[in-house]
Protein backbone atom coordinates (compact mmCIF):
# COMPACT_ATOMS: atom_id res chain seq x y z
CA UNK A 1 0.00 0.00 0.00
CA UNK A 2 1.40 3.35 -0.95
CA UNK A 3 -0.53 5.95 0.95
CA UNK A 4 -1.69 5.47 4.50
CA UNK A 5 -5.45 5.61 4.89
CA UNK A 6 -6.61 7.45 8.01
CA UNK A 7 -10.27 7.50 8.86
CA UNK A 8 -12.36 8.48 11.85
CA UNK A 9 -15.59 6.90 13.04
CA UNK A 10 -18.05 9.21 14.81
CA UNK A 11 -21.48 8.74 16.29
CA UNK A 12 -23.65 9.17 19.36
CA UNK A 13 -22.53 7.37 22.54
CA UNK A 14 -23.55 3.69 22.66
CA UNK A 15 -24.57 3.58 19.03
CA UNK A 16 -22.01 0.92 18.11
CA UNK A 17 -18.90 2.86 17.02
CA UNK A 18 -16.40 0.70 18.85
CA UNK A 19 -18.12 -2.53 17.87
CA UNK A 20 -18.17 -1.49 14.23
CA UNK A 21 -14.64 -0.09 14.30
CA UNK A 22 -13.11 -3.18 15.90
CA UNK A 23 -14.80 -5.51 13.43
CA UNK A 24 -13.72 -3.24 10.62
CA UNK A 25 -10.13 -3.37 11.88
CA UNK A 26 -10.19 -7.16 11.96
CA UNK A 27 -11.72 -7.36 8.49
CA UNK A 28 -8.99 -5.09 7.13
CA UNK A 29 -6.31 -7.10 8.93
CA UNK A 30 -7.72 -10.25 7.33
CA UNK A 31 -7.27 -8.53 3.97
CA UNK A 32 -3.59 -8.12 4.81
CA UNK A 33 -3.49 -4.53 5.95
CA UNK A 34 -1.55 -3.36 9.00
CA UNK A 35 -4.16 -1.56 11.07
CA UNK A 36 -3.88 0.81 14.01
CA UNK A 37 -7.06 1.56 15.97
CA UNK A 38 -7.00 4.65 18.19
CA UNK A 39 -9.81 4.94 20.71
CA UNK A 40 -10.63 8.58 21.45
CA UNK A 41 -13.04 8.16 24.33
CA UNK A 42 -12.33 8.66 28.05
CA UNK A 43 -13.98 5.26 28.63
CA UNK A 44 -10.86 3.75 26.98
CA UNK A 45 -12.76 0.64 25.84
CA UNK A 46 -12.59 1.04 22.08
CA UNK A 47 -10.13 -1.77 21.50
CA UNK A 48 -11.22 -4.12 24.28
CA UNK A 49 -12.74 -6.75 22.02
CA UNK A 50 -9.45 -6.93 20.17
CA UNK A 51 -7.72 -7.99 23.39
CA UNK A 52 -10.18 -10.30 25.14
CA UNK A 53 -11.60 -7.47 27.19
CA UNK A 54 -8.31 -6.33 28.75
CA UNK A 55 -7.67 -2.62 29.34
CA UNK A 56 -4.35 -1.01 28.38
CA UNK A 57 -2.52 2.07 29.72
CA UNK A 58 -3.72 5.16 27.87
CA UNK A 59 -1.80 8.03 26.27
CA UNK A 60 -3.16 10.51 28.78
CA UNK A 61 -2.45 8.28 31.77
CA UNK A 62 1.12 8.08 30.61
CA UNK A 63 1.33 11.86 30.24
CA UNK A 64 -0.24 12.33 33.65
CA UNK A 65 2.26 10.05 35.32
CA UNK A 66 4.90 12.52 34.14
CA UNK A 67 6.44 10.09 31.68
CA UNK A 68 7.18 11.13 28.14
CA UNK A 69 7.88 7.55 27.14
CA UNK A 70 5.01 6.60 24.88
CA UNK A 71 6.55 3.31 23.82
CA UNK A 72 4.22 1.39 26.13
CA UNK A 73 0.97 2.71 24.77
CA UNK A 74 0.78 0.63 21.61
CA UNK A 75 -0.47 -2.90 22.28
CA UNK A 76 -0.88 -5.61 19.75
CA UNK A 77 -4.31 -7.16 19.64
CA UNK A 78 -6.01 -9.83 17.57
CA UNK A 79 -4.44 -10.30 14.12
CA UNK A 80 -1.63 -7.91 15.01
CA UNK A 81 -3.90 -4.88 15.16
CA UNK A 82 -2.12 -2.00 16.90
CA UNK A 83 -4.34 -0.82 19.73
CA UNK A 84 -4.06 2.66 21.25
CA UNK A 85 -6.38 4.32 23.77
CA UNK A 86 -6.20 8.09 24.17
CA UNK A 87 -7.87 7.96 27.58
CA UNK A 88 -9.25 10.97 29.40
CA UNK A 89 -10.38 12.39 32.73
CA UNK A 90 -12.51 10.68 35.34
CA UNK A 91 -16.19 11.48 34.89
CA UNK A 92 -17.07 14.90 36.30
CA UNK A 93 -13.63 16.53 36.29
CA UNK A 94 -11.23 18.13 33.87
CA UNK A 95 -11.80 18.45 30.15
CA UNK A 96 -12.20 15.46 27.81
CA UNK A 97 -12.11 17.61 24.67
CA UNK A 98 -8.74 19.00 25.61
CA UNK A 99 -7.69 15.41 26.28
CA UNK A 100 -8.36 14.39 22.69
CA UNK A 101 -6.42 17.37 21.36
CA UNK A 102 -3.45 16.58 23.58
CA UNK A 103 -3.47 12.85 22.86
CA UNK A 104 -3.55 13.32 19.10
CA UNK A 105 -0.85 16.01 19.24
CA UNK A 106 1.31 13.73 21.35
CA UNK A 107 0.93 10.79 19.01
CA UNK A 108 2.06 13.03 16.19
CA UNK A 109 4.88 14.75 18.03
CA UNK A 110 6.32 11.50 19.27
CA UNK A 111 6.08 10.00 15.81
CA UNK A 112 4.17 6.97 17.10
CA UNK A 113 2.17 6.47 13.94
CA UNK A 114 5.29 6.89 11.80
CA UNK A 115 7.18 4.43 13.93
CA UNK A 116 4.65 1.61 13.47
CA UNK A 117 3.83 2.69 9.96
CA UNK A 118 0.36 1.12 9.69
CA UNK A 119 -1.46 1.01 6.35
CA UNK A 120 -4.72 2.07 7.94
CA UNK A 121 -5.36 4.19 11.01
CA UNK A 122 -8.88 4.28 12.44
CA UNK A 123 -9.89 6.81 15.09
CA UNK A 124 -12.91 5.77 17.13
CA UNK A 125 -14.21 9.07 18.48
CA UNK A 126 -16.71 9.58 21.27
CA UNK A 127 -20.06 11.11 20.58
CA UNK A 128 -21.25 14.31 19.15
CA UNK A 129 -18.96 17.07 17.90
CA UNK A 130 -19.59 19.09 21.04
CA UNK A 131 -16.46 21.21 21.10
CA UNK A 132 -13.16 21.85 19.37
CA UNK A 133 -11.54 18.89 21.08
CA UNK A 134 -13.94 16.34 19.63
CA UNK A 135 -13.51 17.92 16.22
CA UNK A 136 -9.74 17.41 16.39
CA UNK A 137 -9.66 14.29 14.17
CA UNK A 138 -11.66 16.20 11.53
CA UNK A 139 -9.15 19.01 11.31
CA UNK A 140 -6.43 19.26 8.78
CA UNK A 141 -3.77 16.61 8.84
CA UNK A 142 -5.46 14.00 11.01
CA UNK A 143 -8.06 11.79 9.34
CA UNK A 144 -8.94 12.24 5.67
CA UNK A 145 -12.32 10.54 5.75
CA UNK A 146 -15.04 10.48 8.36
CA UNK A 147 -17.73 7.84 8.77
CA UNK A 148 -20.84 8.46 10.80
CA UNK A 149 -22.37 5.51 12.63
CA UNK A 150 -26.06 5.96 13.26
CA UNK A 151 -29.17 3.98 13.98
CA UNK A 152 -32.62 5.17 12.98
CA UNK A 153 -33.01 6.83 16.39
CA UNK A 154 -33.73 10.47 15.92
CA UNK A 155 -31.09 11.56 18.45
CA UNK A 156 -28.49 9.46 16.72
CA UNK A 157 -29.27 11.14 13.40
CA UNK A 158 -29.21 14.46 15.20
CA UNK A 159 -25.65 13.68 16.31
CA UNK A 160 -24.73 12.72 12.74
CA UNK A 161 -26.14 16.03 11.53
CA UNK A 162 -23.98 17.85 14.09
CA UNK A 163 -20.99 15.90 12.88
CA UNK A 164 -21.75 17.10 9.36
CA UNK A 165 -21.74 20.68 10.62
CA UNK A 166 -18.30 20.07 12.08
CA UNK A 167 -17.07 18.65 8.78
CA UNK A 168 -18.41 21.61 6.81
CA UNK A 169 -16.61 23.96 9.14
CA UNK A 170 -13.20 22.52 8.32
CA UNK A 171 -13.88 21.38 4.74
CA UNK A 172 -12.36 24.47 3.16
CA UNK A 173 -9.20 24.43 5.22
CA UNK A 174 -8.03 20.96 4.36
CA UNK A 175 -10.10 19.11 6.94
CA UNK A 176 -11.52 15.63 6.53
CA UNK A 177 -14.53 14.96 4.31
CA UNK A 178 -17.36 12.54 4.84
CA UNK A 179 -16.82 9.01 3.56
CA UNK A 180 -20.38 8.02 4.30
CA UNK A 181 -22.96 6.83 6.77
CA UNK A 182 -22.89 3.41 8.42
CA UNK A 183 -26.34 2.37 9.54
CA UNK A 184 -26.14 0.21 12.64
CA UNK A 185 -28.77 -1.99 14.32
CA UNK A 186 -30.91 -1.75 11.26
CA UNK A 187 -33.35 -4.63 10.94
CA UNK A 188 -36.39 -3.09 9.30
CA UNK A 189 -36.91 -1.67 5.87
CA UNK A 190 -38.46 1.48 7.24
CA UNK A 191 -35.32 2.13 9.30
CA UNK A 192 -33.21 1.72 6.19
CA UNK A 193 -35.46 4.04 4.26
CA UNK A 194 -35.26 6.67 6.97
CA UNK A 195 -31.46 6.66 6.95
CA UNK A 196 -31.50 6.62 3.18
CA UNK A 197 -33.75 9.64 3.11
CA UNK A 198 -31.47 11.40 5.60
CA UNK A 199 -28.44 10.75 3.40
CA UNK A 200 -30.32 12.03 0.35
CA UNK A 201 -31.36 15.17 2.19
CA UNK A 202 -27.81 15.83 3.36
CA UNK A 203 -26.15 14.98 0.06
CA UNK A 204 -24.26 11.98 1.40
CA UNK A 205 -24.36 8.21 0.93
CA UNK A 206 -24.90 5.12 3.05
CA UNK A 207 -21.99 2.69 2.95
CA UNK A 208 -23.56 -0.23 4.73
CA UNK A 209 -26.50 -1.30 6.86
CA UNK A 210 -25.32 -3.43 9.76
CA UNK A 211 -28.11 -5.46 11.32
CA UNK A 212 -28.64 -5.76 15.04
CA UNK A 213 -27.48 -9.29 15.87
CA UNK A 214 -27.22 -11.55 18.93
CA UNK A 215 -23.92 -12.83 17.57
CA UNK A 216 -22.34 -9.46 18.30
CA UNK A 217 -23.51 -9.58 21.91
CA UNK A 218 -22.35 -13.16 22.43
CA UNK A 219 -18.90 -12.50 21.04
CA UNK A 220 -18.61 -9.30 23.04
CA UNK A 221 -19.32 -11.22 26.24
CA UNK A 222 -16.38 -13.46 25.36
CA UNK A 223 -14.22 -10.38 24.86
CA UNK A 224 -14.07 -10.80 21.10
CA UNK A 225 -15.13 -9.14 17.90
CA UNK A 226 -17.69 -10.93 15.78
CA UNK A 227 -15.04 -11.71 13.19
CA UNK A 228 -12.91 -13.48 15.77
CA UNK A 229 -15.70 -15.17 17.71
CA UNK A 230 -17.96 -16.10 14.87
CA UNK A 231 -16.01 -15.66 11.67
CA UNK A 232 -18.46 -17.59 9.51
CA UNK A 233 -21.58 -15.78 10.67
CA UNK A 234 -23.74 -13.65 8.42
CA UNK A 235 -22.89 -10.68 10.62
CA UNK A 236 -19.17 -11.21 10.00
CA UNK A 237 -19.82 -11.12 6.28
CA UNK A 238 -21.51 -7.74 6.65
CA UNK A 239 -18.45 -6.30 8.40
CA UNK A 240 -16.17 -7.73 5.69
CA UNK A 241 -18.28 -6.11 3.03
CA UNK A 242 -18.13 -2.81 4.92
CA UNK A 243 -14.34 -3.05 5.12
CA UNK A 244 -14.05 -3.71 1.43
CA UNK A 245 -16.20 -0.73 0.53
CA UNK A 246 -14.30 1.58 2.85
CA UNK A 247 -10.87 0.59 1.64
CA UNK A 248 -11.87 0.79 -1.99
CA UNK A 249 -13.98 3.90 -1.78
CA UNK A 250 -12.48 7.13 -2.96
CA UNK A 251 -15.78 8.96 -2.58
CA UNK A 252 -15.82 11.86 -0.19
CA UNK A 253 -18.56 14.37 0.41
CA UNK A 254 -18.96 17.78 1.86
CA UNK A 255 -22.27 17.06 3.58
CA UNK A 256 -25.15 19.51 3.64
CA UNK A 257 -26.38 19.42 7.23
CA UNK A 258 -30.02 20.30 7.89
CA UNK A 259 -30.85 23.22 10.11
CA UNK A 260 -32.43 22.23 13.42
CA UNK A 261 -36.02 23.07 12.50
CA UNK A 262 -35.81 21.22 9.21
CA UNK A 263 -34.32 18.25 11.02
CA UNK A 264 -37.06 18.21 13.63
CA UNK A 265 -39.91 18.33 11.19
CA UNK A 266 -38.24 15.76 8.95
CA UNK A 267 -37.65 13.56 11.98
CA UNK A 268 -41.17 13.74 13.32
CA UNK A 269 -42.74 12.51 10.07
CA UNK A 270 -40.38 9.54 10.04
CA UNK A 271 -40.82 8.74 13.70
CA UNK A 272 -44.60 8.49 13.36
CA UNK A 273 -44.14 6.24 10.36
CA UNK A 274 -41.74 3.98 12.29
CA UNK A 275 -44.10 3.88 15.27
CA UNK A 276 -46.89 2.88 12.95
CA UNK A 277 -44.84 -0.03 11.63
CA UNK A 278 -43.99 -1.09 15.13
CA UNK A 279 -47.62 -1.18 16.10
CA UNK A 280 -48.35 -3.41 13.15
CA UNK A 281 -45.45 -5.68 14.00
CA UNK A 282 -46.24 -6.04 17.70
CA UNK A 283 -49.99 -5.81 17.84
CA UNK A 284 -51.10 -6.65 14.37
CA UNK A 285 -53.04 -3.41 14.31
CA UNK A 286 -53.36 -1.63 11.01
CA UNK A 287 -53.44 2.11 11.02
CA UNK A 288 -56.90 2.14 9.48
CA UNK A 289 -58.30 -0.06 12.24
CA UNK A 290 -56.52 1.46 15.15
CA UNK A 291 -56.99 5.05 14.03
CA UNK A 292 -56.16 8.26 15.87
CA UNK A 293 -52.66 7.48 17.09
Amino acid sequence: MTKRKEIAIYGKGGIGKSTTTSNLSVALAEMGYKVMQIGCDPKSDSTNTLRRGRFIPTVLDTLRSGSSDLSKIVHEGYKGILCVEAGGPEPGVGCAGRGIITAIELLNQKGIIEEYSPDVVIYDVLGDVVCGGFAMPIRQGVAEQIYAVTSSDFMSLYAANNLFKGIVKYANSGGALLGGIIGNSINKTAQQEMINDFSRKTGTQVVEYVPRSQTVTKCELDGMTTLEGSPKSKQAAVYRSLAKKIIESGNSFVPKPLDPEELWSWGSTWVSRLLGEQKVAYEGIQDSKGGGI
Binding site: L60, G88, P89, G94, R98, G99
Partner: peptide, 10 residues
Protein backbone atom coordinates in the same frame (compact mmCIF):
# COMPACT_ATOMS: atom_id res chain seq x y z
CA UNK B 1 -0.10 22.00 33.15
CA UNK B 2 -1.48 20.29 30.11
CA UNK B 3 -2.26 17.08 31.97
CA UNK B 4 -4.04 19.03 34.73
CA UNK B 5 -6.33 20.75 32.24
CA UNK B 6 -7.40 17.30 31.04
CA UNK B 7 -7.66 15.40 34.29
CA UNK B 8 -8.55 18.36 36.51
CA UNK B 9 -6.33 20.13 39.04
CA UNK B 10 -8.37 19.81 42.21
Amino acid sequence: LEADTIHGGE
